[in-house]
Design a protein around this nucleic acid. Sequence first.
DNA 1: TAGATTGTTAATCGATTAACAATC
DNA 2: TAGATTGTTAATCGATTAACAATC
Lengths: 195, 195
Amino acid sequence: MMEAGVVRVSSNEIGAQMGLTASQIRQDFNCFGGFGQQGYGYNVPKLRDQLAEILGMHQTNTAVIVGAGHFAHALLHNFKFGNCGVQLLAAFDILPTVVGTSIAGVPIRHIDTLEDYIQKHEVDIVILTLPSNKAEEMAKRAANAGVRGIWNLTNEALPPMPNGVLTESMHLSDSLLTLNYYLSDASESENTEEN
Amino acid sequence: MMEAGVVRVSSNEIGAQMGLTASQIRQDFNCFGGFGQQGYGYNVPKLRDQLAEILGMHQTNTAVIVGAGHFAHALLHNFKFGNCGVQLLAAFDILPTVVGTSIAGVPIRHIDTLEDYIQKHEVDIVILTLPSNKAEEMAKRAANAGVRGIWNLTNEALPPMPNGVLTESMHLSDSLLTLNYYLSDASESENTEEN
DNA sequence: TAGATTGTTAATCGATTAACAATC
DNA sequence: TAGATTGTTAATCGATTAACAATC
């Protein structure tokens, strides 16, 4: 909306755009504070700024990526880490042919140096883009080395991590299976809403 | 569990592994039918098979991918479409340098031929891995050409599609921001009761 | 049979929606 | 002031948890 130059919006309009009720918009915002003004609605730039603050888009967490394969390439070339409050420092891999090279300006280091690097640079987040069967092992190594969070992009579920390290997983297969389910006969008796 | 050779499991054990109550496991399964046996629990291979059936892992939906960039490379090289009940037929792009080549055996065609291809091959699903600002346009073109579902992997939200075409979106930025939020101060006061 | 564990109903809890007074 | 729309409380709804009879 900001890009479109919209300055003012009501909970009703936001709800309509998102497929939610106006009540829900107001209730949810008010979990974090009163961002609006009676009789007016919400000021778009101000609202965006406050939400950005809550989501931590302004802070900077440092991150490294483990597994410098195709997925890592895709992220390093296209994903706007800066917009998510994340600064990407380095990538790690085991292949001698890629170690020492760089992707989109990010250097690739050998996986054996992971722990040292995490400690020396106080890395906050480890991003997992490696083969699923190595995900748990690497997550634990990173957690023990002192990261605060793990962004798991493999299709493997991770067990709880030591030291209260947080895990956020994103399973492509879950998402595709969800679509598949709604396209299948199995869901036919359900309603016809889409998200 | 199947890979580990486990044959029998109780709702209690499943719940413990997933961080849910046994009640929830049983309630949820029973939305789709009674898969267990009193006094025994659930037979792992049988349960897996029944869940696979419900999720449509056995059927085959055809799919094409729009945007043959790094993300498409990552998917075509590593993602097990077959395990999700999806058969990937082709990729589409606008760059003359990639049109006519192929990735992991999947041919890349020119985006102008998208509608024709969808109709001729009765494509079920379109996968969007293109720049965000083109996502909506391409989604609509695909929907109008007759696909049944759209798997949106861009960071752009899609409006409701024509013809009741379903949309399943996967936003990497949402996921990373979620992690960021839990790592930030903003979530620190979360569990504290106040006024 | 005795023990275990489901399927299912009832109780509890939390989240969404509706309503409206406050107020810009 | 009059109209609009929030913040917030109360009502409703749905989802989770607890309990237990059925039964393997």
